[in-house]
Amino acid sequence: MLQMDSFWANIFNRKKAEQAVQELLVQIPLFESLSQRELAALEDILYRRNYKAGELIFRQGEPGAGMYIVLEGTVSIIYEPTGETLTQLSHGDFFGEIALLNETPRSATAQAQTTCTLLGFFQPELLDLLSRNPRLAVKILLPLAQIAGQRLIDADKKLLLMHEALHALQDGSPDLTTEDKYDELSRLPLD
């Protein structure tokens, strides 16, 4: 009876864990348009990785293979060589999504701040999904392209503001509008 109980408990715990993962996934902009069944299919191709506190997830400059979603714990994103912590990510946050499109070098280092459990979604799996289930892959790729496009717009805006601020500094007359631009610049995302 005890064995039966633990058997059912095991099944229910697994179901609960799967549900928790799917609830987390649907909050991520990349996956918000996916149905329950599609989320389950996506979960099948995700890698669940556990990290000890202080362990490196990836290093700045290394080629990126894909994105990570924080399931448990805290992750620090660190800019090298200064060692400055750019941000700290926790449950439900995600990072490295552009590596799903292109194997570009990582722009910062990711390190586990506490014991962490991450879900990894990688380019080989996305490409594999594209050949097996193109409809689902396109539903992921479209918001990914939108995120990449938004990043490009932000980067353009940032570049323009920096350009204007640099000109103002060269002219030696940083005025009120220049300070406003500094503020705006600091509010823009770093990557």
Binding site: P63, A65, G66, G120, F122
Partner: peptide, 28 residues
């Protein structure tokens, strides 16, 4: 095949995980 592959890749230590994925993908 896919679950066997996933199981084998899951056994790779964190430090070599992305590297292994990348090598296997390119070989494929």
């Amino acid at each position: 095949g896919p679950s066997i592959r996933k199981g084998l890749i899951n056994a790779v230590p964190n430090r070599y995980f992305e590297l292994t994925l990348s090598i296997l993908h390119k070989m494929d």
